[in-house]
Design a protein around this nucleic acid. Structure first.
Ligand code: NAD
Ligand code: NAD
Lengths: 226, 226
DNA sequence: AATTTTATGTTATTTTTTTAACAAAACTTG
DNA sequence: CAAGTTTTGTTAAAAAAATAACATAAAATT
C-alpha cells in the first residue's frame, strides 16, 4: 500500500486551507494558546467548523474530545504534509514593482520555502541585491537554476514576455510556476502551474457590488409598489 | 419575471472566466481578428471548448455555426454583464510596496473600474501623488469615500491593522473589499469580500512540486524492482 | 448517578462545477 | 448532390466541494 503518496489525493481546496490553518495556528501559538477548537479555526478563516474537521479527518489528524486540537502537534502534522523536507527554493523572475514587493514579502516567512534569487533582463537590475537577494541575468537562468537547485518560479515579467520566459523556465528544469502575469502560459503537464490575475479578481468584486446594488434598487421598487 | 438580476445566478467561476475571456478577446481584437472559435478561446485560457460554450450559453450569447463568435459583439455582451454602467470607483488602502505596485498596474486598464485615490497613515505618503493618484489620510476616509462615491477597496495595509481598517471601510460605506492582507477579515454580509493570500498559493505550488517529485521517486523504485 | 452540554469524527446528502454526449446546422469534398 | 466534417448549443452525467446529519465520548451540571 502506498504511504508516501497518500496525500496526493487530498482535494486542492484542502491543501489551500491547510496552509491557511497553519498560518492561523502559528499566530495562536505565539499568543500562548496550546489548544484550539474546530469552531475557533473556522471562525478565523470564516468557514464552517465541519469543514475544518473534515479537512483534518482527511489528513488523519485527531484532536481530543472537548479539548480540541493541540496547536503545536497540528502545525507539525500540517508541515509534514505540505512542506518538502529538504525545502523548496524559488526564484522571482522579473524584478519589477510586483516582483520586488513579493520578494520582500515572502522573505523569511517560511522555513521550507525560500526565494533565493531573482532574474531580470535590465542592466540596471542585474547584479544588484534586493532584500539580500541577488538579481541575475536571465541569460544565467539555466546555470543558476541548476547550481542552486531552484524548483519554483514566480513569474512577474511584462505580459508580452510571459510565454518566452515560461519556456526558458521549463527548459531550465523548473517544476512549478506561479504566474502573476495577466497572460496565461502553456507548460508541459509535469510542470505544476498556478495562475492568478488581479484584474479578474477585481472585476469579480465589482460585479458583485453591482449585483447587490441592483438587488437593493429592486427591493426599493417593491416597497414603493406596495 | 426578473430581468435585471438574471445574471445574479451565474456561477462564480463563470464570472471569473468572463473577465478572462474579455481580456483575451480584447487582445484578439487588437490583432485584427473579427471572429473566434470556442476552441481558440479555450486554448488561450487552457480550458476546454465545452466550458467556453457552456459559459456563453449561460449568458445567452449565440455565435454563428462554423464561423464562431463575433469578437466585438462578445466583448460588448460580457461588458454589459460584468461592468457597472456608471463605473465603479476603487481605493487602494495602504500605499506600501504592494499597494503602489497594484495602483500602477491597474491604472487605466479598465474603463468602468478605476482606482481614484489611495489612503495611508504615514505622514510621508499623505498628500503625495502616485501615478497621478492622491494619497489621503485614513482620517479622511469617510469624507473622501462619500465625496468620490468609492465602492471598492483594495486592502494592502500591514496585517496587524487589517481588521481595524476593514471596520472603518465598512463604516465609510464601502460595498466590496479585496483583501491582500494575509489576515482574514470579517465584514457584514452585504459587503462582498474576496481574499487572496500569496503565501497560500506559493505553498500550494510547492506542495504539488513535492508530490510530483515523490511520484517520480516511486516510479524509479518500481523500475528498479522490475 | 443520571442528564445535559459540548466537541469530535465519520458517513450521507446537497450543491457546485466540470466534462461528456449528441443533435442540428453550415460548410467542404468527392 | 450525398457523405463527411466542423462547430455550435443543450441536455445528461460525473467529479469535486461543501454542508448536513448523527453517533460517540468527555466533561459539566443537577
Ligand atoms: N504591479 C502589479 O501590482 C501587478 C499586479 C498583477 C500583475 N502584474 C503583472 O506582473 C508583471 C510585472 O508587473 P510590474 O508592475 O512589476 O512591471 P515592471 O515593469 O515594474 O517589472 C517588470 C520587470 O521585468 C523585467 N523584464 C522584462 N523583460 C524580462 C524578461 N524577458 N525576463 C526577465 N525579466 C524581464 C523588467 O526589467 C522589469 O524589471 C506584469 O506582467 C504585470 O502585468 C503586476
Ligand atoms: N508585498 C507583497 O508583495 C505582498 C504580497 C502579499 C500580501 N502582502 C500584504 O499586503 C500588505 C502590505 O504589504 P506591503 O509589502 O505593501 O507592506 P508595506 O509596509 O510596504 O506597506 C504598508 C503600508 O500601509 C500603511 N499603513 C500602515 N497602517 C495603516 C493603516 N492603519 N491604514 C492605512 N495604511 C496603513 C503603511 O504606511 C505602508 O505605506 C501586508 O499585509 C502584506 O502582508 C504583501
Amino acid at each position: 500500500m502506498k504511504v508516501k503518496n497518500y496525500y496526493k489525493n487530498l482535494p486542492h481546496k484542502t491543501i489551500e486551507r491547510l496552509s491557511q490553518y497553519r498560518r492561523a495556528l502559528l499566530i495562536c501559538l505565539e499568543n500562548g494558546k496550546t489548544h484550539i477548537f474546530s469552531h475557533e479555526i473556522a471562525s478565523i478563516q470564516h468557514i464552517t467548523p465541519v469543514q475544518v474537521r473534515r479537512d483534518l479527518m482527511l489528513i488523519g489528524y485527531s484532536g481530543t474530545l472537548r479539548k480540541g486540537y493541540n496547536i503545536q502537534d497540528l502545525i507539525d502534522v500540517i508541515s509534514n504534509i505540505i512542506d518538502d523536507e529538504a525545502g523548496i527554493k524559488a526564484a522571482v523572475v522579473g524584478m519589477g514593482n510586483l516582483g520586488r514587493a513579493l520578494l520582500k514579502y515572502i522573505r523569511g516567512k517560511r522555513h521550507k520555502l525560500e526565494v533565493v534569487v531573482g532574474f531580470d533582463t535590465s542592466e540596471d537590475k542585474i547584479g544588484k541585491q534586493y532584500n539580500g537577494i541577488t538579481c541575475y541575468s536571465l541569460d544565467d537562468l539555466d546555470r543558476v537554476v541548476k547550481e542552486k537547485d531552484i524548483k519554483l518560479a514566480i513569474l512577474t515579467v511584462p505580459a508580452a514576455y510571459s510565454n518566452d520566459v515560461a519556456d526558458k523556465l521549463v527548459k531550465a528544469g523548473i517544476k512549478g510556476i506561479l504566474n502573476y502575469t495577466p497572460k496565461p502560459i502553456r507548460v508541459p503537464d509535469e510542470v505544476y502551474l498556478e495562475e492568478y490575475d488581479m484584474i479578474t479578481t477585481l472585476e469579480k468584486v465589482a460585479f458583485y457590488i453591482k449585483m447587490h446594488q441592483e438587488e437593493e434598487e429592486e427591493e426599493q421598487q417593491h416597497s414603493h409598489d406596495a
